[in-house]
Write a protein that binds this DNA or RNA. Structure first.
Lengths: 207, 207
DNA sequence: CCGGTTATTGGACAGTTGCGCAATACCGGC
DNA sequence: GCCGGTATTGCGCAACTGTCCAATAACCGG
Protein backbone atom coordinates (compact mmCIF):
# COMPACT_ATOMS: atom_id res chain seq x y z
CA UNK A 1 0.00 0.00 0.00
CA UNK A 2 1.18 3.48 -0.83
CA UNK A 3 2.80 5.19 2.07
CA UNK A 4 0.66 8.01 3.47
CA UNK A 5 1.10 10.87 5.90
CA UNK A 6 -0.17 10.03 9.39
CA UNK A 7 -3.11 12.43 9.09
CA UNK A 8 -4.18 11.02 5.75
CA UNK A 9 -3.84 7.44 6.89
CA UNK A 10 -5.75 8.08 10.07
CA UNK A 11 -8.50 9.61 8.05
CA UNK A 12 -8.47 6.74 5.56
CA UNK A 13 -8.84 4.25 8.41
CA UNK A 14 -11.83 6.15 9.76
CA UNK A 15 -13.41 6.22 6.28
CA UNK A 16 -12.90 2.49 5.88
CA UNK A 17 -14.26 1.72 9.34
CA UNK A 18 -17.31 3.82 8.56
CA UNK A 19 -17.96 2.01 5.31
CA UNK A 20 -17.87 -1.31 7.12
CA UNK A 21 -19.97 -0.02 10.03
CA UNK A 22 -22.71 1.05 7.61
CA UNK A 23 -22.80 -2.44 6.11
CA UNK A 24 -22.39 -4.60 9.21
CA UNK A 25 -23.21 -2.38 12.16
CA UNK A 26 -20.83 -0.48 14.41
CA UNK A 27 -20.38 -3.30 16.89
CA UNK A 28 -19.51 -5.85 14.23
CA UNK A 29 -16.58 -4.00 12.67
CA UNK A 30 -13.32 -5.96 12.94
CA UNK A 31 -9.69 -5.00 12.43
CA UNK A 32 -9.49 -7.23 9.38
CA UNK A 33 -12.66 -5.76 7.88
CA UNK A 34 -11.20 -2.28 8.06
CA UNK A 35 -7.87 -3.42 6.61
CA UNK A 36 -9.59 -5.24 3.75
CA UNK A 37 -11.74 -2.19 3.01
CA UNK A 38 -8.60 -0.04 2.79
CA UNK A 39 -6.66 -2.70 0.94
CA UNK A 40 -3.93 -2.73 3.55
CA UNK A 41 -2.62 -5.06 6.20
CA UNK A 42 -4.38 -5.43 9.51
CA UNK A 43 -1.38 -4.45 11.58
CA UNK A 44 -1.64 -0.92 10.26
CA UNK A 45 -4.81 -0.19 12.17
CA UNK A 46 -3.16 -0.76 15.52
CA UNK A 47 -0.30 1.46 14.46
CA UNK A 48 -2.73 4.38 14.52
CA UNK A 49 -5.32 3.35 17.09
CA UNK A 50 -4.74 1.75 20.45
CA UNK A 51 -7.85 -0.38 20.29
CA UNK A 52 -10.97 -1.07 18.26
CA UNK A 53 -12.94 1.02 20.72
CA UNK A 54 -10.89 4.03 19.59
CA UNK A 55 -11.48 3.25 15.91
CA UNK A 56 -15.23 2.96 16.42
CA UNK A 57 -15.37 6.13 18.47
CA UNK A 58 -13.51 8.03 15.77
CA UNK A 59 -15.73 6.62 13.03
CA UNK A 60 -18.90 7.47 14.91
CA UNK A 61 -17.62 10.92 15.70
CA UNK A 62 -16.98 11.60 12.03
CA UNK A 63 -20.58 10.99 10.92
CA UNK A 64 -22.25 12.53 13.95
CA UNK A 65 -19.94 15.53 13.88
CA UNK A 66 -20.40 16.15 10.17
CA UNK A 67 -24.17 15.92 10.43
CA UNK A 68 -24.12 18.30 13.37
CA UNK A 69 -22.07 20.80 11.38
CA UNK A 70 -24.31 20.39 8.34
CA UNK A 71 -27.41 20.95 10.44
CA UNK A 72 -25.85 24.02 12.04
CA UNK A 73 -25.37 25.43 8.55
CA UNK A 74 -28.93 24.68 7.53
CA UNK A 75 -30.27 26.31 10.67
CA UNK A 76 -28.05 29.35 10.23
CA UNK A 77 -29.54 29.91 6.78
CA UNK A 78 -33.14 29.11 7.72
CA UNK A 79 -33.98 32.62 8.85
CA UNK A 80 -36.88 32.99 11.28
CA UNK A 81 -37.15 30.68 14.34
CA UNK A 82 -40.13 28.75 12.99
CA UNK A 83 -38.29 27.91 9.80
CA UNK A 84 -35.26 26.90 11.88
CA UNK A 85 -37.28 24.42 13.88
CA UNK A 86 -39.09 23.05 10.86
CA UNK A 87 -35.76 22.52 9.11
CA UNK A 88 -34.41 20.83 12.20
CA UNK A 89 -37.31 18.38 12.43
CA UNK A 90 -37.09 17.53 8.77
CA UNK A 91 -33.34 16.99 8.75
CA UNK A 92 -33.33 14.91 11.92
CA UNK A 93 -36.16 12.55 11.04
CA UNK A 94 -34.72 9.33 9.64
CA UNK A 95 -36.05 7.28 6.77
CA UNK A 96 -36.80 3.62 7.37
CA UNK A 97 -33.37 2.22 6.54
CA UNK A 98 -31.41 5.15 7.79
CA UNK A 99 -27.81 4.04 8.35
CA UNK A 100 -26.90 7.19 10.17
CA UNK A 101 -29.57 6.78 12.83
CA UNK A 102 -28.74 3.08 13.03
CA UNK A 103 -25.22 4.13 14.00
CA UNK A 104 -26.69 6.17 16.84
CA UNK A 105 -28.61 3.13 18.02
CA UNK A 106 -25.44 1.04 17.86
CA UNK A 107 -23.49 3.69 19.72
CA UNK A 108 -26.05 4.03 22.53
CA UNK A 109 -26.17 0.28 23.02
CA UNK A 110 -22.40 -0.14 22.91
CA UNK A 111 -21.75 2.87 25.13
CA UNK A 112 -22.11 0.71 28.22
CA UNK A 113 -19.13 -1.41 27.25
CA UNK A 114 -16.89 0.88 25.17
CA UNK A 115 -15.59 3.91 27.06
CA UNK A 116 -14.27 5.85 24.06
CA UNK A 117 -17.51 5.39 22.18
CA UNK A 118 -19.54 6.41 25.23
CA UNK A 119 -17.47 9.56 25.58
CA UNK A 120 -17.96 10.45 21.92
CA UNK A 121 -21.68 9.77 21.75
CA UNK A 122 -22.27 11.58 25.02
CA UNK A 123 -20.41 14.63 23.83
CA UNK A 124 -22.22 14.67 20.50
CA UNK A 125 -25.63 14.23 22.10
CA UNK A 126 -24.92 17.15 24.36
CA UNK A 127 -23.96 19.25 21.35
CA UNK A 128 -27.22 18.38 19.58
CA UNK A 129 -29.20 19.35 22.67
CA UNK A 130 -27.26 22.61 22.77
CA UNK A 131 -28.19 23.30 19.17
CA UNK A 132 -31.89 22.88 19.92
CA UNK A 133 -31.62 24.96 23.07
CA UNK A 134 -29.99 27.78 21.13
CA UNK A 135 -32.74 27.68 18.50
CA UNK A 136 -35.33 27.91 21.26
CA UNK A 137 -33.58 30.82 22.99
CA UNK A 138 -33.39 32.68 19.69
CA UNK A 139 -37.10 32.20 19.13
CA UNK A 140 -37.90 33.32 22.65
CA UNK A 141 -35.73 36.42 22.21
CA UNK A 142 -37.56 37.31 19.00
CA UNK A 143 -40.84 36.81 20.79
CA UNK A 144 -41.97 34.07 18.42
CA UNK A 145 -41.70 31.26 20.97
CA UNK A 146 -42.87 31.23 24.55
CA UNK A 147 -40.90 28.99 26.86
CA UNK A 148 -39.63 29.43 30.38
CA UNK A 149 -37.36 26.38 30.46
CA UNK A 150 -35.34 26.27 27.24
CA UNK A 151 -33.01 23.56 28.48
CA UNK A 152 -35.80 21.23 29.53
CA UNK A 153 -37.72 22.00 26.35
CA UNK A 154 -34.66 21.22 24.23
CA UNK A 155 -34.16 17.85 25.86
CA UNK A 156 -37.85 17.06 25.60
CA UNK A 157 -37.94 17.86 21.89
CA UNK A 158 -34.71 16.03 21.16
CA UNK A 159 -35.82 13.01 23.18
CA UNK A 160 -39.18 12.72 21.54
CA UNK A 161 -37.53 12.74 18.14
CA UNK A 162 -34.98 10.16 19.25
CA UNK A 163 -37.69 7.97 20.72
CA UNK A 164 -39.85 8.12 17.63
CA UNK A 165 -36.95 7.80 15.19
CA UNK A 166 -35.82 4.73 17.05
CA UNK A 167 -39.17 3.06 16.30
CA UNK A 168 -38.96 4.02 12.64
CA UNK A 169 -35.48 2.57 12.26
CA UNK A 170 -35.67 -0.48 14.52
CA UNK A 171 -39.18 -1.65 13.62
CA UNK A 172 -39.93 0.03 10.28
CA UNK A 173 -43.58 -0.76 10.18
CA UNK A 174 -44.79 0.27 13.62
CA UNK A 175 -44.33 4.00 13.22
CA UNK A 176 -43.67 5.59 9.84
CA UNK A 177 -41.80 8.74 9.00
CA UNK A 178 -44.96 10.72 8.27
CA UNK A 179 -46.56 9.93 11.64
CA UNK A 180 -43.34 10.60 13.43
CA UNK A 181 -42.89 14.00 11.80
CA UNK A 182 -46.46 15.01 12.59
CA UNK A 183 -46.21 13.84 16.18
CA UNK A 184 -42.86 15.49 16.80
CA UNK A 185 -44.12 18.74 15.28
CA UNK A 186 -47.19 18.68 17.51
CA UNK A 187 -45.04 18.16 20.58
CA UNK A 188 -42.71 21.01 19.64
CA UNK A 189 -45.62 23.36 18.93
CA UNK A 190 -47.05 22.75 22.40
CA UNK A 191 -43.64 23.08 23.96
CA UNK A 192 -43.09 26.52 22.43
CA UNK A 193 -46.73 27.64 22.54
CA UNK A 194 -47.11 27.91 18.80
CA UNK A 195 -50.44 27.53 17.00
CA UNK A 196 -51.11 23.98 15.84
CA UNK A 197 -49.73 23.39 12.38
CA UNK A 198 -46.98 26.04 12.51
CA UNK A 199 -44.24 23.46 12.35
CA UNK A 200 -45.87 21.16 9.79
CA UNK A 201 -43.16 19.82 7.54
CA UNK A 202 -43.85 19.57 3.83
CA UNK A 203 -43.64 15.80 3.55
CA UNK A 204 -41.95 14.74 0.38
CA UNK A 205 -42.43 11.53 -1.51
CA UNK A 206 -39.60 9.21 -0.58
CA UNK A 207 -38.03 6.28 -2.44
CA UNK B 1 -27.11 -32.65 33.84
CA UNK B 2 -30.43 -33.83 35.14
CA UNK B 3 -32.86 -34.68 32.42
CA UNK B 4 -35.71 -32.17 32.18
CA UNK B 5 -39.02 -31.87 30.40
CA UNK B 6 -38.81 -29.83 27.20
CA UNK B 7 -40.81 -26.95 28.70
CA UNK B 8 -38.62 -26.79 31.80
CA UNK B 9 -35.43 -27.00 29.81
CA UNK B 10 -36.53 -24.34 27.38
CA UNK B 11 -37.32 -22.10 30.28
CA UNK B 12 -34.00 -22.87 31.96
CA UNK B 13 -32.15 -21.93 28.77
CA UNK B 14 -33.98 -18.62 28.62
CA UNK B 15 -33.16 -17.93 32.27
CA UNK B 16 -29.50 -18.68 31.69
CA UNK B 17 -29.35 -16.57 28.54
CA UNK B 18 -30.92 -13.72 30.46
CA UNK B 19 -28.41 -13.96 33.27
CA UNK B 20 -25.59 -13.74 30.76
CA UNK B 21 -27.24 -10.94 28.79
CA UNK B 22 -27.49 -8.85 31.93
CA UNK B 23 -23.78 -9.28 32.57
CA UNK B 24 -22.37 -9.01 29.05
CA UNK B 25 -25.07 -7.41 26.93
CA UNK B 26 -27.64 -9.09 24.73
CA UNK B 27 -25.48 -9.05 21.61
CA UNK B 28 -22.52 -10.65 23.36
CA UNK B 29 -24.27 -13.78 24.62
CA UNK B 30 -22.74 -16.96 23.18
CA UNK B 31 -23.93 -20.55 23.06
CA UNK B 32 -21.14 -21.58 25.38
CA UNK B 33 -21.94 -18.79 27.85
CA UNK B 34 -25.50 -20.01 28.15
CA UNK B 35 -24.40 -23.64 28.52
CA UNK B 36 -21.87 -22.74 31.20
CA UNK B 37 -24.48 -20.70 33.08
CA UNK B 38 -26.82 -23.69 33.06
CA UNK B 39 -24.04 -26.13 33.81
CA UNK B 40 -24.83 -28.15 30.71
CA UNK B 41 -23.24 -28.89 27.36
CA UNK B 42 -23.40 -26.39 24.54
CA UNK B 43 -25.08 -28.79 22.14
CA UNK B 44 -28.21 -28.69 24.24
CA UNK B 45 -29.00 -25.12 23.30
CA UNK B 46 -29.27 -25.96 19.62
CA UNK B 47 -31.49 -28.87 20.48
CA UNK B 48 -34.12 -26.38 21.64
CA UNK B 49 -33.41 -23.30 19.56
CA UNK B 50 -32.61 -23.11 15.88
CA UNK B 51 -30.23 -20.20 16.27
CA UNK B 52 -28.85 -17.70 18.74
CA UNK B 53 -31.24 -15.12 17.34
CA UNK B 54 -34.12 -17.25 18.63
CA UNK B 55 -32.51 -17.60 22.06
CA UNK B 56 -31.97 -13.86 22.37
CA UNK B 57 -35.48 -13.08 21.20
CA UNK B 58 -36.93 -15.46 23.77
CA UNK B 59 -34.75 -14.03 26.52
CA UNK B 60 -35.66 -10.46 25.67
CA UNK B 61 -39.30 -11.35 25.45
CA UNK B 62 -39.22 -12.83 28.92
CA UNK B 63 -38.01 -9.64 30.65
CA UNK B 64 -39.99 -7.21 28.54
CA UNK B 65 -43.13 -9.31 28.81
CA UNK B 66 -42.84 -9.75 32.56
CA UNK B 67 -42.29 -6.05 33.13
CA UNK B 68 -45.26 -5.28 30.92
CA UNK B 69 -47.45 -7.63 32.94
CA UNK B 70 -46.14 -6.22 36.22
CA UNK B 71 -46.83 -2.68 35.08
CA UNK B 72 -50.31 -3.65 33.94
CA UNK B 73 -50.94 -4.90 37.48
CA UNK B 74 -49.61 -1.74 39.07
CA UNK B 75 -51.77 0.40 36.82
CA UNK B 76 -54.83 -1.71 37.48
CA UNK B 77 -54.42 -1.10 41.21
CA UNK B 78 -53.51 2.59 40.96
CA UNK B 79 -57.07 3.84 40.92
CA UNK B 80 -57.66 7.25 39.39
CA UNK B 81 -56.08 8.15 36.01
CA UNK B 82 -53.60 10.62 37.47
CA UNK B 83 -52.26 8.01 39.87
CA UNK B 84 -52.07 5.54 36.99
CA UNK B 85 -49.90 7.84 34.93
CA UNK B 86 -47.71 8.80 37.86
CA UNK B 87 -47.16 5.14 38.62
CA UNK B 88 -46.35 4.51 35.00
CA UNK B 89 -43.72 7.24 34.83
CA UNK B 90 -42.11 6.09 38.02
CA UNK B 91 -41.96 2.44 37.07
CA UNK B 92 -40.67 3.11 33.56
CA UNK B 93 -37.92 5.52 34.45
CA UNK B 94 -34.63 3.64 34.68
CA UNK B 95 -31.87 4.15 37.18
CA UNK B 96 -28.36 4.86 35.92
CA UNK B 97 -27.19 1.26 35.60
CA UNK B 98 -30.54 -0.18 34.67
CA UNK B 99 -29.95 -3.56 33.06
CA UNK B 100 -33.50 -3.87 31.89
CA UNK B 101 -33.41 -0.67 29.88
CA UNK B 102 -29.96 -1.59 28.61
CA UNK B 103 -31.56 -4.71 27.17
CA UNK B 104 -34.02 -2.51 25.29
CA UNK B 105 -31.11 -0.51 23.88
CA UNK B 106 -29.39 -3.72 22.83
CA UNK B 107 -32.57 -5.05 21.26
CA UNK B 108 -33.25 -1.87 19.26
CA UNK B 109 -29.72 -1.81 17.92
CA UNK B 110 -29.66 -5.51 17.10
CA UNK B 111 -33.13 -5.46 15.56
CA UNK B 112 -31.69 -4.48 12.21
CA UNK B 113 -29.72 -7.71 11.96
CA UNK B 114 -31.70 -10.25 13.98
CA UNK B 115 -35.18 -10.92 12.61
CA UNK B 116 -36.54 -12.83 15.60
CA UNK B 117 -35.36 -10.16 18.01
CA UNK B 118 -36.81 -7.42 15.82
CA UNK B 119 -40.14 -9.17 15.78
CA UNK B 120 -40.17 -9.55 19.56
CA UNK B 121 -39.08 -6.01 20.40
CA UNK B 122 -41.51 -4.56 17.87
CA UNK B 123 -44.40 -6.50 19.31
CA UNK B 124 -43.52 -5.56 22.88
CA UNK B 125 -43.09 -1.89 22.02
CA UNK B 126 -46.51 -1.90 20.45
CA UNK B 127 -47.96 -3.46 23.59
CA UNK B 128 -46.40 -0.77 25.78
CA UNK B 129 -47.82 1.95 23.56
CA UNK B 130 -51.20 0.25 23.82
CA UNK B 131 -50.97 0.29 27.59
CA UNK B 132 -50.34 4.04 27.63
CA UNK B 133 -53.10 4.64 25.11
CA UNK B 134 -55.56 2.74 27.25
CA UNK B 135 -54.58 4.73 30.33
CA UNK B 136 -55.15 7.92 28.39
CA UNK B 137 -58.54 6.80 27.07
CA UNK B 138 -59.61 5.89 30.60
CA UNK B 139 -58.62 9.32 31.84
CA UNK B 140 -60.43 11.02 28.99
CA UNK B 141 -63.55 8.96 29.67
CA UNK B 142 -63.50 9.99 33.33
CA UNK B 143 -63.07 13.60 32.28
CA UNK B 144 -59.77 13.97 34.09
CA UNK B 145 -57.65 14.18 30.92
CA UNK B 146 -58.31 16.18 27.80
CA UNK B 147 -56.86 14.74 24.64
CA UNK B 148 -58.21 14.38 21.13
CA UNK B 149 -55.51 12.08 19.80
CA UNK B 150 -54.90 9.32 22.35
CA UNK B 151 -52.80 7.23 19.97
CA UNK B 152 -50.48 10.09 19.05
CA UNK B 153 -50.32 11.20 22.67
CA UNK B 154 -49.42 7.69 23.78
CA UNK B 155 -46.54 7.45 21.31
CA UNK B 156 -45.34 10.91 22.22
CA UNK B 157 -45.29 10.13 25.92
CA UNK B 158 -43.68 6.74 25.42
CA UNK B 159 -41.09 8.16 23.03
CA UNK B 160 -40.09 11.00 25.27
CA UNK B 161 -39.52 8.58 28.10
CA UNK B 162 -37.53 6.27 25.86
CA UNK B 163 -35.46 9.14 24.53
CA UNK B 164 -34.70 10.49 27.99
CA UNK B 165 -34.12 7.07 29.53
CA UNK B 166 -31.68 6.30 26.79
CA UNK B 167 -29.56 9.27 27.85
CA UNK B 168 -29.68 8.24 31.48
CA UNK B 169 -28.54 4.70 30.71
CA UNK B 170 -26.09 5.30 27.88
CA UNK B 171 -24.40 8.43 29.23
CA UNK B 172 -25.17 8.41 32.96
CA UNK B 173 -24.02 11.89 33.70
CA UNK B 174 -25.66 13.94 30.96
CA UNK B 175 -29.23 13.56 32.16
CA UNK B 176 -30.07 12.19 35.59
CA UNK B 177 -33.14 10.32 36.72
CA UNK B 178 -34.57 13.28 38.60
CA UNK B 179 -34.40 15.62 35.59
CA UNK B 180 -35.79 12.96 33.34
CA UNK B 181 -38.77 12.29 35.61
CA UNK B 182 -39.53 15.98 35.91
CA UNK B 183 -39.25 16.57 32.18
CA UNK B 184 -41.33 13.55 31.25
CA UNK B 185 -44.01 14.54 33.77
CA UNK B 186 -44.14 18.06 32.33
CA UNK B 187 -44.56 16.69 28.82
CA UNK B 188 -47.34 14.35 29.89
CA UNK B 189 -49.15 17.10 31.79
CA UNK B 190 -49.20 19.31 28.70
CA UNK B 191 -50.22 16.40 26.54
CA UNK B 192 -53.25 15.66 28.72
CA UNK B 193 -53.98 19.26 29.70
CA UNK B 194 -53.35 18.72 33.38
CA UNK B 195 -52.23 21.49 35.73
CA UNK B 196 -48.46 21.68 36.11
CA UNK B 197 -47.27 19.45 38.93
CA UNK B 198 -50.15 16.98 38.83
CA UNK B 199 -47.90 14.15 37.72
CA UNK B 200 -44.94 15.00 39.95
CA UNK B 201 -43.41 11.77 41.15
CA UNK B 202 -42.26 11.52 44.73
CA UNK B 203 -38.56 11.12 44.03
CA UNK B 204 -37.01 8.66 46.39
CA UNK B 205 -33.44 8.55 47.57
CA UNK B 206 -31.60 6.03 45.46
CA UNK B 207 -28.43 4.04 46.10
C1' DC C 1 23.48 8.30 -3.16
C1' DC C 2 23.05 7.04 1.48
C1' DG C 3 21.49 6.62 6.23
C1' DG C 4 17.90 7.24 9.45
C1' DT C 5 13.30 7.46 10.33
C1' DT C 6 8.90 5.46 10.19
C1' DA C 7 4.89 3.62 7.52
C1' DT C 8 3.67 -0.85 6.43
C1' DT C 9 3.63 -5.82 6.33
C1' DG C 10 1.97 -10.37 7.50
C1' DG C 11 1.94 -13.80 10.46
C1' DA C 12 2.05 -15.51 15.49
C1' DC C 13 -0.70 -15.97 19.54
C1' DA C 14 -4.30 -17.59 22.30
C1' DG C 15 -8.19 -17.57 22.28
C1' DT C 16 -13.37 -17.29 20.55
C1' DT C 17 -17.54 -17.98 17.42
C1' DG C 18 -22.26 -20.66 15.70
C1' DC C 19 -23.60 -24.90 14.31
C1' DG C 20 -23.93 -29.98 13.52
C1' DC C 21 -23.59 -34.71 14.61
C1' DA C 22 -22.57 -39.29 16.35
C1' DA C 23 -22.57 -41.34 20.67
C1' DT C 24 -24.39 -41.83 25.28
C1' DA C 25 -27.34 -41.61 29.35
C1' DC C 26 -31.54 -41.48 31.28
C1' DC C 27 -36.63 -41.98 31.99
C1' DG C 28 -41.47 -43.61 31.57
C1' DG C 29 -44.30 -47.28 29.99
C1' DC C 30 -44.80 -51.99 29.33
C1' DG D 1 -36.47 -55.47 34.39
C1' DC D 2 -36.15 -54.12 29.91
C1' DC D 3 -36.66 -51.21 25.88
C1' DG D 4 -37.80 -47.40 22.85
C1' DG D 5 -37.60 -42.72 22.68
C1' DT D 6 -35.32 -38.65 23.53
C1' DA D 7 -32.65 -35.48 26.45
C1' DT D 8 -27.96 -34.71 26.77
C1' DT D 9 -23.10 -34.92 25.73
C1' DG D 10 -18.78 -33.23 23.99
C1' DC D 11 -16.13 -32.71 20.42
C1' DG D 12 -15.17 -31.50 15.42
C1' DC D 13 -15.35 -28.04 12.01
C1' DA D 14 -13.89 -23.87 9.74
C1' DA D 15 -13.84 -19.56 10.52
C1' DC D 16 -13.11 -15.66 13.16
C1' DT D 17 -11.42 -12.31 17.19
C1' DG D 18 -8.04 -8.22 19.15
C1' DT D 19 -3.47 -7.43 19.97
C1' DC D 20 1.37 -7.56 19.34
C1' DC D 21 5.88 -7.57 17.01
C1' DA D 22 9.93 -8.48 14.20
C1' DA D 23 10.94 -7.69 9.57
C1' DT D 24 10.62 -4.95 5.42
C1' DA D 25 9.97 -1.07 2.40
C1' DA D 26 9.59 3.54 1.23
C1' DC D 27 10.37 8.22 1.83
C1' DC D 28 13.19 12.30 3.69
C1' DG D 29 17.02 15.49 4.53
C1' DG D 30 21.74 15.70 3.92
Amino acid sequence: MARMSPQDRRSAIIDAALAVAIRKGLAAVTVRDVAAEMGSSSGLIHHYFGSMDDVLAAAFERVAGQELAATEDVLAKAGDPVAVLTAFLDSYAPVAEDWSFQLWLDAWAEAARRPALREASGRLNLAWAGLVEKAIRDGVATGVFRCDDPKGAAWRILSIIDGLALQVVAHHSIVNRTDMLAWAATAAERELQLPAGSLAVQVQVQG
